[in-house]
Write a protein that binds this DNA or RNA. Structure first.
Lengths: 196, 196
DNA sequence: GACAGAATAGGATAATCGTCCTAGTTCTAA
DNA sequence: TTAGAACTAGGACGATTATCCTATTCTGTC
């Protein structure tokens, strides 16, 4: 059981706080308090708030990539892997209803701040898009793979945004059901025949 | 040509700034500068920032209601009215790609701030939902009207979020095309027969 | 045991923020 | 015309912020 370094724990807590409260609304003091260290200690490990943000995004990118690789290595086929992605909405529904999607809300905030890290953060979307695209391609939908991946991402984003704004879990569950149905209709052999 | 009162112009500019920069990131000084008045003058008309926020939301609610009533009074049928809603994404695409959807991003920010005005802001969603629901009902889809309205709202939100994060106008246009196709498939008489 | 460098704590600082306060100016109604 | 209200400008204040700086403690190595 390797004890986590202070440097890592700062990013852990910053990650959580940026998600729960937003980037701008999170202060150095909040992070320090969450980790249980002093403000000065935080600035020793990360000189600027932007540096913390970059590290948080890097952490998210790494963890997302690891998750996708785990799914890739699992015994399931592409369709089931995509279903795993959809079911994130169910698994994380409590947090999503309180704070929205971590990726979407961060990008939205950074866009408003005209923050240069927006392109870094949106790489999270690209990561998902490319992975989903390769799953659709594996289903024989190579030509539409990118569009399908973006479509699924957008649907997920919309569900998270609305579920959070309206605090409506029934809506979230219903939309997830629709997403599964959409995937079944898109990925099934008969559908692929229809498209051909 | 009635000259706009200072009180109204404050809300106009605050509305714009809250959309472009976000609520928290907009200062009294920014609003005052945008209107061309002093900071003290702003606090004379609105004592607190929360009061400005409430007035901005009220303004958005009123303008949205007026827009929907105009569509309702126009000569078009329910399906075309829904298409007018979808086409907001096209008409406002430049701003959406820079700042996202005004409703969705405001609700997301207020949710993170745990701001009590979230329920006020989410009434904008409810307004759209009820109106869209009545259009679907007029198409003979009374039982599914609410779910269809929420579905359409969520799709729009997702499109705005992703188009803004990825700065991808082609994606936005393609998704709008899909939305029109979805509506045609859902609202057409043959579809209604299939559902029955 | 001494010492170097990393790690930690917390005060200092300059900037910004929302809000309050006061003093002028302009408008309005009698 | 004039009194009072409405409006405007901008200084003051206390709180908060990111960042800087200095002092202290810890840790591993001769």
């Amino acid at each position: 059981m390797k004890p986590t370094s202070t440097r890592d724990r700062i990013i852990e807590e910053a990650d959580r706080l940026f998600y729960e409260r937003g980037y701008e609304h999170t202060a150095f003091a909040d992070i320090a308090e969450a980790v249980g260290i002093s403000r000065g200690n935080v600035t020793f490990h990360y000189q600027t708030k932007d540096a913390i943000l970059d590290a948080v995004i890097d952490r998210r990118l790494a963890r997302t990539a690891a998750l996708l690789e785990r799914w890739e290595a699992g015994g399931e086929g592409p369709a089931d892997r995509i279903k795993s992605f959809i079911d994130i909405l169910i698994a994380n529904r409590a947090k999503i209803m309180l704070h929205g999607c971590p990726v979407g809300t961060l990008c939205a905030e950074l866009a408003k701040l005209e923050h240069h890290a927006l392109s870094h953060a949106s790489a999270l979307f690209t990561l998902f898009k490319d992975w989903l695209g390769s799953q659709f391609a594996a289903l024989g939908l190579k030509k539409e793979a990118d569009a399908l991946a973006l479509h699924l991402l957008a649907r997920s984003q919309g569900i998270a945004t609305l579920a959070s704004a309206l605090r409506d879990e029934a809506f979230l569950r219903e939309e997830v059901r629709l997403l599964h149905a959409w995937l079944d209709g898109t990925a099934s052999p008969s559908s692929r025949r229809r498209r051909a």
